[in-house]
Design a protein around this nucleic acid. Sequence first.
DNA 1: CCAGTCAAAATCGTATACGGATGTCGCCGA
DNA 2: TCGGCGACATCCGTATACGATTTTGACTGG
Lengths: 234, 234
Amino acid sequence: MTIVLASDQTAVAPSQGQIIRDVLLGRLQRGEIGLEDRLVDTAIAAEFGVSRMPARDALKRLVHEGYLEATTRGFMLPRVTHNEILEIFDLRRLLEPRAVALVAQSMKPAELTALEGTIGDARGATRAGDTELVFKASERFRNGWIAAVPNVSLRQAIQRYMTQVQAVRMLTFRDPVNHPLIVDGNTRLFDAFANRDAVAASDHILRFIYEGERAYLNAVKAEAEEAQQAAKSA
Amino acid sequence: MTIVLASDQTAVAPSQGQIIRDVLLGRLQRGEIGLEDRLVDTAIAAEFGVSRMPARDALKRLVHEGYLEATTRGFMLPRVTHNEILEIFDLRRLLEPRAVALVAQSMKPAELTALEGTIGDARGATRAGDTELVFKASERFRNGWIAAVPNVSLRQAIQRYMTQVQAVRMLTFRDPVNHPLIVDGNTRLFDAFANRDAVAASDHILRFIYEGERAYLNAVKAEAEEAQQAAKSA
DNA sequence: CCAGTCAAAATCGTATACGGATGTCGCCGA
DNA sequence: TCGGCGACATCCGTATACGATTTTGACTGG
């Protein structure tokens, strides 16, 4: 897999700010930055051995990309509202069926093989009951097919809300009941890719998104009940 | 109309960079910056009476928003490729039918009245043959309904590609044949809004986008033939 | 012991400065 | 006269520094 930049083909010399931004984005996407963490430019600068400017640059860019939120005291993860999450499910239903259809028609054997590996990993991890690994494998599967979306604008539109999806995903993953649903959904999607069946891919992802929404709503309900129980017992 | 910021409710003190960015964006959207113009941070800084930092900040933000392109020698208008334009038409067909359907169901009387004004302006300008005014009115119509999209995430996804749409629109507007098509399309869409007819709104915008794509392809073909003519006569 | 006030720390936004890369222009030779 | 080469100008990225604002924490008075 070659490194592909956002909009250009020749990467002469990525600036420090760019490098830092990429590293931070990786951490954000891997969930290494918690809701309570505050990212401060001076700290980032010290870590990377540069001045505040490239660090600030990276932070401001991440804010603009929607990955962070600027506060009066450092940069933090944006607080995603319940409503926003429902909006994003709606948006996903518009974009992703077409995206996977295009992928099904254009996927190269090498990409297919890479995806197959993540499916196997997820299956193994589910049997072993390793939540963390199921999560990682499913994330790699998703990132894999998104990277294969041939319509660049469509791909970028999908990637915009990836962090929020990631957050929701982390919530629903806490209930192991959802693990087989996710693995099965991914498997069906993969089979559609392998068969170059664009229609099946669309149908599967749509069903998958609806299932994800239901799982999210269940998780929210469970959390609310839990809070109520705690309040009652106190 | 109250001033609503991108993501927050309280505007304590917009930074210089923010102000400059807004001013430059206005110029870009009004077409005051040509394809050959190079925006340089020192010049911007001098114009606004600040240092390079806020100017650079504004420029980099505009780059990230897709309004500008960073070169080794200043910031310029991005060169949108033919392929990218076709991709965006595809994306529009996915997002905008749903968006206008939601608008049709949720539009407030005040917003409707504002849109009605732009329709009237466009009709008048078409009769008068004033390309510039038709363009402006149609732009205000589009911005008007986009602002009324209740799903914030969906709205932002649409706004992301607005500059590119704007560029294409400017190209197709050069042929007055397209003016009545545009005005009629907007009128049909407006009627659907007025009748709260979500289905009709979806259908109209979809047809409108297809017409837009055809007009774009015709404009490209016409341009190519023109270039050929010029080459032959030379 | 608690509340109010004020000072200090933290952090952001901006200013100024320097080095490096890249494009441009003029000069020189064929 | 035209092409190649080198010095200069331009502009970007980054470093360092300073003032403003907001939060935190301690100190004092009730």
